[in-house]
Design a protein around this nucleic acid. Structure first.
Lengths: 143, 143
DNA sequence: TTGATATTGATCAGCATTATCAATTAACGG
DNA sequence: CCGTTAATTGATAATGCTGATCAATATCAA
C-alpha cells in the first residue's frame, strides 16, 4: 500500500539522520498521507485537532518540512499564498492547471513538454534538477 | 528607445486612471527601467537612496505595483522569496532557468513548449491566460 | 492661484513562517 | 528496567514581506 511505503521511507530517513520517531510524527504522517491533496499546514493541523488536540501548529509545520526533506512530500507554492503539501511517493511528477476564478487545481503532465524542458535547460548549459510549471486560466465550469 | 516608450505607457495609464504624475513616479520609473533585471523593491529603493534619499520604501513598493498594473512591469515570485520585478515592454514573454547554487536567472523561451502548454490547458477544458515555468538546476559555471 | 483630492513617507497591522526555550520524551547502554 | 543524553514538543515571540493608515504635501484642472 502506498501510504505504508511512504511512512517507512519517512521513518527510515528519520533513523538515518539520528532523529527520533515520536507519537506526533506518526500521527502527522498518517494524517498527511491519507488527507486530500494540496493541503495546507493549517488545514492539516485543523484535521488533526479532532483526534489529537494536543498537537501544536509548529509541530505540524516542522514535520511537513521534514517529510519534504525525506522525499515523501512536496511543497507547492502558488503565487504568494500559503504553502501547500502533497504526497510524492508512488506518484509521478506533475504540473498544475490553476483556475483564476475558483482556485481549483488540476494535475497535468505532458511527456513532450517534459522532454523539451530538459532539452531547453541543456541547451543553455544547465543541468536540470527539477522544474515547476503552472498554467493559469479559467476552468471548464468558470469560463 | 524602449525605456522612453515604457515610461509613456506608464504615464498614459496614470492619466487615464485620473491619477497624478509625481516627481517620485518619474524617478522610480526611470530607475526601474534602466536597472538590472529581476530587481527587488528593496534593491530599487537602495539604488534610489543614492540620489533621492527622501523617497520612502512604501512609495517604491506602491509604484512597482502600479507599473505592473499599467503593463510595463511584471512581478516574479520564485519560491517563497521576495518579489522581483522586471520591465515588460518591448520584451517577449519568457520563462526562467534558475541556478540552485548561485541563484542566477536565465531567461528562456521555447515556442514548441508554449504551444504544447496551450494544448494541454485546452485538453482539460481550461482557457489559458498565462503561465509560469521555472527550471531549477546547475548553471554552466556551478555544475 | 486656488481648491479638491491623489500621493507621499513614516509607521503600523496582518500573514505565514521560523526561531526560541523550558518541559517532555525517545533511544541507547548498562 | 533504569537513568542519561539529547531530540522533540508546544506555546509563544520574532521575523520578513506586503498592505493599510493617516496627517502633511503636492499635483492639476479650472
Amino acid at each position: 500500500m502506498k501510504s505504508v511505503k511512504a511512512k517507512d521511507i519517512f521513518f527510515d530517513y528519520i533513523r538515518t539522520k539520528g532523529l527520533r520517531i515520536t507519537r506526533q510524527r506518526e500521527v502527522i504522517a498518517e494524517a498527511f498521507l491519507s488527507a486530500e491533496k494540496h493541503i495546507t499546514a493549517e488545514d492539516l493541523h485543523a484535521l488533526l485537532k479532532q483526534r489529537h488536540p494536543e498537537i501544536g501548529f509548529a509541530t505540524v509545520h516542522r514535520n511537513l518540512k521534514l517529510m519534504c526533506e525525506s522525499g515523501i512530500a512536496e511543497e507547492i507554492k502558488i503565487g504568494g499564498n500559503k504553502a501547500r503539501y502533497e504526497p510524492k511517493i508512488g506518484r509521478e511528477h506533475h504540473d498544475h492547471l490553476i483556475c483564476l476564478k475558483c482556485g481549483k487545481f488540476i494535475e497535468v503532465k505532458d511527456d513532450r513538454i517534459e522532454r523539451l524542458q530538459d532539452e531547453l535547460a541543456k541547451a543553455h548549459g544547465f543541468v536540470p534538477h527539477r522544474h515547476k510549471m503552472e498554467i493559469y486560466g479559467l476552468c471548464r465550469t468558470c469560463r
